[in-house]
Write a protein that binds this DNA or RNA. Structure first.
Lengths: 116, 116
DNA sequence: CTGATACTCAAGAGGACACTTGACTGTTGC
DNA sequence: GCAACAGTCAAGTGTCCTCTTGAGTATCAG
């Protein structure tokens, strides 16, 4: 709850990259090692590790070292927070558009009624 | 559908900034001029205009010049696309966790049954 | 017409980001 | 043991972002 701002900044920032989204997408299928995440991407392992660190720093994934491999798994909460922010805004403007619709149909009704 | 990647990149990038999220938040209450968006923010008008351009370039807001003022309004679709991407991923991992739950309870059942 | 308002534009400083390279460390399989 | 593997670390490079300054333009109010 604290640092909500920083976390949203970081989370949206993390998702603003095709490679990282691809990693998240892969991880929704189940845990994977860094090498497995790296396989479909055209970049060095070192770069992939850095991406994983970004995803980890905003809580979207957690990692755990098993022997010489680091396993990554997705962590729902951070993503849900980002989703929730958008959903909340949408609720706001949908409510407003509903009211606008009401007003418009009210005006329409008044106009038809006031036609002599 | 084309450029889905670029748009998601841009949209998440746009939302990865507290000031821009504040502007979006303000715009959910209804259209506003650039100056109105700038009012609560501690930065120059020029900077605010640049933020508006970012939001516009990814389709989250549209603007229209009326006399000497530029009115901004929120545009649902781009935000919905971002929300949808997260929602789709969530569906993925929730389904997986459900299956995991099934497997775990199956194992549990087997274990109880196989107790001699 | 004049001054104030509401931007608009261009250039640039400074920092954050996305990589790469090259050297190094801990694990595992034979 | 030792070679291959899976990652780790530090440094450096080029690019993108954010924001400012200092100019200019169009519009409106009186």
């Amino acid at each position: 709850m604290l640092n909500e701002t920083i976390d949203l900044d970081r989370t949206f920032q993390a998702l603003a990259d095709k490679s990282r989204r691809a990693m998240v997408e892969r991880l929704t299928l189940g845990p994977a090692s860094v090498s497995q995440l790296a396989a479909p991407l055209a970049m060095t392992l070192a770069a992939v590790v850095q991406h994983v660190q970004v995803l980890e720093s905003c809580g979207v994934v957690t990692t755990e070292k098993v022997g010489r491999t680091r396993m990554c798994r997705i962590e729902a909460e951070a993503m849900t927070a980002a989703e929730q922010w958008i959903t909340d805004r949408r609720r706001g403007w949908e409510a407003r558009l509903d009211r606008l619709g009401d007003v418009l149909s009210e005006i329409a009704t008044e106009n038809t009624q006031e036609k002599p």
